[in-house]
């Protein structure tokens, strides 16, 4: 039984490596654009969700905010050289293109 189950693992892996493995819930597993959770903006935004949740409070929720508003806030943090918050210190390290991708992703995703 152990041997059979281990063997199936290798079979699965071999198929995955050959590009045959798939996740049927995705419309097109060959296109990153078709898998929103795996695109560049989603990946960048993983750093946000450790602190920001729908519960809000001392760290505001990012839900239901338009992309333009999120983008403007992040660009303001980036521009304010003498800002004192964690967000100022972090946004100094993100490019405008990163901020565009994050804003677009967060605005279309209820739970980043």
């Amino acid at each position: 039984m152990q041997a059979v189950s281990a063997a199936l693992g290798v079979v699965t892996l071999a198929l995955l490596l050959a590009g045959c493995g798939s996740v049927p819930s995705w419309p097109d597993e060959r296109s990153a654009a078709a898998i929103p959770a795996l695109d560049h903006g989603a990946t960048l935004s993983l750093a946000c969700s450790g602190c920001h949740s729908p519960a809000g409070g001392a760290i505001p929720s990012l839900e239901h905010r338009p992309a333009a508003l999120i983008r403007q806030s992040l660009m303001d943090y980036k521009a304010e050289a003498d800002g004192t918050t964690v967000m100022h210190r972090m946004m100094h390290g993100y490019s405008e293109a990163d901020i565009d991708a994050i804003s677009t992703y967060l605005a279309r995703s209820a739970t980043p």
Binding site: G19, E29, A32, H40, A47, G93
Partner: peptide
Amino acid sequence: ATQIARVLAGLAPEPTVLANT
């Protein structure tokens, strides 16, 4: 987890920007 999912979906792993607080 994201990079494992990308590889299993036939996509290459992708660099990004990380942070810590």
